[in-house]
Amino acid sequence: MKNTFSDSKQVITVSTFSDLVNTNFQGNMNAICWSRNLLGDFKEIVDKLELIENITEVSVEDLLILQLSEQGHLAREIILNDIQLLTNCGASPSLNLLKNYERDDELDFISTDVYSYHVDRSPIETDTFLCTYHGSASDILPNDQVEQKILIPEIREKLKELHEGQETEFETFLEEYFFDLHYQPKSDAKPLNLGLGHLWRLAVDHPTQQVLPCVHRAPAEKDGEYRLLLIC
């Protein structure tokens, strides 16, 4: 069973972009949702874009040259406006047409790809913004419903076997290969799906952050369906 925005202490819902970017994270709240019911045909845009690789970055120019119906035009205007809003506040948004991300299957006891629950880290003060316009949407989990994978004894022992350096360098090794960013859901975990059309701001692990970073994961894509995702 999945949570809804209204019953989650992790999320606050706002009604304007200004509130999205200016509301402070606090307490257990590390995700802010600009809740929207978007008009327009985003599938038409997906169908008319060309997938070059499994992940194709779509430029503003790519969007502008599309010949679209009235509903497709509405969808394009929303995307262009979101890109402009984020750019104006200093972010660097990227619009991606996604078939799938690369899977990390090198180790059979731990995964470090984006399908694994993880947090984002940055050396500077920043947040993660994302909006799924079409396709499957990401999930988040409260921090008390996950366990850091490197603290799970059997995983930690295998990582120690993998580490070939001094014991004093082990923690640095975990950070260097991003093992410390990944989390295992507890048995009673209740994911919250971010849904379509909502613009989200998620807390990132950085030196000035006052709350725990938001634990999230990319969804498993549906066969034959591409995702259209704005992220920065």
Rank of each mutant, 00 (worst) to 15 (best):
M1D: 11
M1S: 14
K2W: 02
N3Q: 15
N3M: 15
T4L: 12
F5G: 10
S6Q: 15
D7G: 05
Q10E: 14
V11E: 11
F17Q: 13
F17H: 14
S18N: 12
S18A: 12
V21K: 07
N22W: 00
T23I: 03
T23P: 01
Q26V: 03
N28M: 08
I32W: 03
C33G: 09
W34T: 05
S35Q: 15
S35C: 10
S35Y: 07
N37K: 15
L38C: 07
L38W: 02
K48P: 01
E53K: 13
N54P: 01
I55S: 02
I55F: 00
T56C: 08
V60S: 08
D62I: 01
D62L: 04
I65F: 04
I65D: 10
L66M: 08
L68N: 07
S69R: 10
H73W: 01
L74V: 07
L74G: 01
A75D: 02
Q84A: 11
N88Y: 02
C89E: 13
A91T: 06
A91I: 00
S94T: 15
L95G: 09
N96C: 14
N100D: 12
Y101L: 12
D104G: 03
D104I: 01
D104Y: 05
D105P: 00
L107A: 08
L107V: 02
F109S: 13
T112S: 04
S116L: 00
P123T: 08
I124Y: 10
I124T: 13
E125G: 14
T128Y: 04
T128R: 07
T132W: 03
T132D: 07
A137W: 04
L141V: 08
L141D: 13
L141P: 06
D144S: 15
Q148Y: 01
I150Y: 05
L151W: 03
E157V: 03
K158F: 02
L159N: 05
K160L: 13
L162E: 12
H163S: 15
G165E: 11
Q166M: 09
F170C: 07
E171S: 09
E171G: 01
F173K: 08
E176M: 06
E176F: 02
E176W: 00
F178N: 12
L181V: 00
H182T: 12
P185Y: 10
S187M: 12
A189T: 08
G195V: 10
G197W: 08
G197Q: 13
L199G: 06
W200T: 07
W200V: 06
L202D: 03
L202P: 02
V204R: 11
D205H: 06
D205P: 00
T208R: 06
Q209G: 00
Q210R: 12
V211Y: 04
V211M: 06
L212Q: 13
V215A: 09
V215F: 02
H216N: 12
H216C: 08
R217T: 03
E221Q: 14
E221N: 13
K222M: 08
R227W: 05
L228E: 10
C232I: 00
